[in-house]
Write a protein that binds this DNA or RNA. Sequence first.
DNA 1: CATGAATGAGAGTTCATTCAT
DNA 2: AATGAATGAACTCTCATTCAT
Lengths: 209, 209, 209, 209
Amino acid sequence: MAKCRDANKTKETITYSAMELFAKDGYEGVSVESIAKKADINKAMIYYYFKNKAVLYEAVVRNLLDDIYYEILKESKKCKKPIDEMKSFIFTYAKFADENPYLPSLMLSELSVGGRNLPDDMFVGLKRIFSLLRSILKRGEEKGCFEKSLPIMVHFMIVGSINLFITTRQLRLKVENEFGKDICNDCKIEEISEHLFYSIKKMLKGEDT
Amino acid sequence: MAKCRDANKTKETITYSAMELFAKDGYEGVSVESIAKKADINKAMIYYYFKNKAVLYEAVVRNLLDDIYYEILKESKKCKKPIDEMKSFIFTYAKFADENPYLPSLMLSELSVGGRNLPDDMFVGLKRIFSLLRSILKRGEEKGCFEKSLPIMVHFMIVGSINLFITTRQLRLKVENEFGKDICNDCKIEEISEHLFYSIKKMLKGEDT
Amino acid sequence: MAKCRDANKTKETITYSAMELFAKDGYEGVSVESIAKKADINKAMIYYYFKNKAVLYEAVVRNLLDDIYYEILKESKKCKKPIDEMKSFIFTYAKFADENPYLPSLMLSELSVGGRNLPDDMFVGLKRIFSLLRSILKRGEEKGCFEKSLPIMVHFMIVGSINLFITTRQLRLKVENEFGKDICNDCKIEEISEHLFYSIKKMLKGEDT
Amino acid sequence: MAKCRDANKTKETITYSAMELFAKDGYEGVSVESIAKKADINKAMIYYYFKNKAVLYEAVVRNLLDDIYYEILKESKKCKKPIDEMKSFIFTYAKFADENPYLPSLMLSELSVGGRNLPDDMFVGLKRIFSLLRSILKRGEEKGCFEKSLPIMVHFMIVGSINLFITTRQLRLKVENEFGKDICNDCKIEEISEHLFYSIKKMLKGEDT
DNA sequence: CATGAATGAGAGTTCATTCAT
DNA sequence: AATGAATGAACTCTCATTCAT
């Protein structure tokens, strides 16, 4: 079949197929066989490139976390004021999650089982993202433009809401005629980001500013 | 070895054991065997009481969703003003999630796979909770005490952040000395609720009201 | 198929089929599938009764070693003089090996890989047999009817030659017309035992007795 | 990474690595991959030099059997009396087995499965060795210096005991403090040979000669 | 000569589910 | 209501072997 004999390409194909499936069905819900079928390669090739299923999963998650982290970091550097950084954080994360809907799925499914399928050093990926947000909040507080807050909760509000917004897309379609515009089925990700940023901004501004 | 001969009790034992395991390891990560072992009953009994694994899972999720729904509803009725209802919603959901940490796990793991393991009529449970919040927001807007908002996003911010707060408990312990108080490892659920309510309130209040 | 629903019987069937195959093809040369087929049961039943292939193998070897040990012990007790015990040892071991040709095969194949497939406590089985012979030799020496010898070498000469005699049966048939009577294809096991005992006796008797 | 470009050397490296592994783990217990790794060459090269795994195995065994045969033959020719030839046979075989412990392992493992992994013409190797011993015995009998014996049993006693002595080396170390000197852990191979020769000699000498 | 990529078959093991008692 | 035995399908992973370069 797909005998391209190009290691990099094959490996990438595997990783991508795996990502799609893991995001759709979770770690345990995906068989190595099915990944091979989707990638249109021989099952044994997966073991040629990855020690085992767990290692492949790791690679998938690591890739995504690396990508989103560097994306946020890159955009963040263009900003001057903490409030701009916050906006950038929200917009960048939302855009990435929108374009790579596997990230929210994988993140939620992994967190729902307490990171059972990931080695400890994998949390570096998650921690780095939180660290970024935390430093934004810290700088904002120091400069007096943000109120004091609980960083982890701000993080969870942003990341949690975006993740849920993305992962529930299909589900929300089913109940469109019941809830209409209240479930934002037609909203573009930018509108969502805008609204979220607007909310977070109000949250962080001093009460009588 | 006739264990107890009390159908209700046996069924409850099964459901409870299943809940713990499903929450910890996800649907696919749990074997019927392991549920039987935890419940200390014969594996075949599970099939005596539940058609199959999926039906048992449904029962588990349905139970939890019913419980949280009626709990919120009950507390909600004690309130008069929309802002009190909102506070009640947040505090009740958070308290329940704190006492039944299986709920956040199951909810996230289910949403992360788009409800793959649940029959459609199961979303009734999820929808009802959102409906409650939506009506609170609507009433608040009508009475002029809330700004206009995107209900689904408010819902996701509240539910998403609480869920993540609960499910990441173990994980956050590992990084305590790195992030200190910023990750709220010692916070009681009431403090979290209070902070969350405070944030949401600011979000919903008119900018210069 | 063979749904006898009798645990003991099924387990025995498995053990016996496994013994035949392991003896014929060695541990690695036998598939669990093939054992199931021979036993005419479902492959999963093997895992119902035995944790895994290695444990099944252990059980097989342990059974055989136990049986031969107790057989030798029983016969040994009927003897009075060391020389009779020696005769009994040789005849009993040879008879058992002849009737259970799986023992020599398994013993040789296991010793050829240094007991790689067996847990340490399994050597108890081998040690006990050697211990028996050693005590016979010791008693003989003390009573002055045996010359001093190297127990382990006497053991290896007896056990080694009988084992090889049994395991090469098929092979020797192929070269019958080349070597004729020199390879003892028609010898009954009693003749072999007799000859072996005669040889060992001469070995152990004082030079000028 | 052209390794050496010397066909003979590469082939020898493969054969030697294969020998070590086959002796340690048996035919089925060794993967072609592992042989390649040990030989530090590409796996495909093995198939370049050897049709398949079985052929490589044959080559290994054939080499060993050839070597030992010609070694015994060479030493044998230096002797005049049958008793000296017998001594030479025992000492040479023992010395070779001691220096090439792969031979005893392979021989036992092969005999334990009835030569399943070897083609028929491979037994030539085994037969030749037995033929040598047989002719020594015959000559001894004719000259009246040996008693009549069963050649195959004498062969098995010699070869069997030496083989077991070599292959159980590691195992015997484990039980040293239980059996002490009785298991000859510190014996040099010459002592063993001497003792064995002494025993066989007594066996073969006429009862009152 | 030499290599890394590819393959198909099959191995050991687990699991949801059913059957007979 | 309860149990232990049984099953077939699926899963993860390995292996001998071949292909293309």
